[in-house]
Amino acid sequence: MTDDDPIIRVRGLRNQFGSQVVHDNLDLDVRRGEVLGIVGGSGTGKSVLLRSIVGLQRPTAGTVTVLGRTISEMEEEERKRLEQQWGILFQDGALFSALTVAENVQVPYREHLGLPLDLMDELAALKITMVGLPSDACTKYPSELSGGMRKRAGLARALALDPDILFLDEPTAGLDPIGAAAFDTLIRDLQRTLGLTVFLVTHDLDTLHATCDRIAVLADKRVTLQGTMDDMLRSDHPWIKEYFTGPRARAAQASATG
């Protein structure tokens, strides 16, 4: 596999729940080192797409190739190794409620690597600093944290094993505008320093402007358009037009350029 090959390649993906078809013949490429934003109306299956790629949802048809390996054809052991090369931030952090923030971050170290205790503590503290949490958050339980802090803690856990790919599901949903902007900056900074590939599902136009290199639009059960923000603005597709040039979009654009 060369560096030019897409790090994630989805071909002919079909997802169907009962008689309801969510995706039909969906193709998608994610290039190494980019931030790809996935947008689409409610119910277009953005989260389902994410879940199909990471193997939480078995697609009805189609193939998903991540880092050159096809998800559905993998053995259990190989899968486990691959899973350590990506990190996922779920919508509300999905922290284990019985563990403190530090213990949450240490779960992958404990389970997969068996690192010495002291090193585990140091690395967890490093990750927690990286995502911008204060030091007293380490010993807190998820229920004692605000929504924004939970997301940061979830991000620290997703980054614990220094993954190549980071999946983010609505990272700014439920955050106030200031918190959301700070989170956007954090994602962009971390992506640059750690050389991450980021797959980002979002509704938030500000996030798209602030963090994404490219955007993929889900509509009509597949990826209708994949390209840069400029490509989006030039599109004639009615939904894309409405989404990217509506009143809220203009405000987001103004704040991104101004």
Partner: peptide, 11 residues
Amino acid sequence: VAEGYRFGFNL
């Protein structure tokens, strides 16, 4: 990144 972390965290 590593230098951003100070010792003395209570975990």
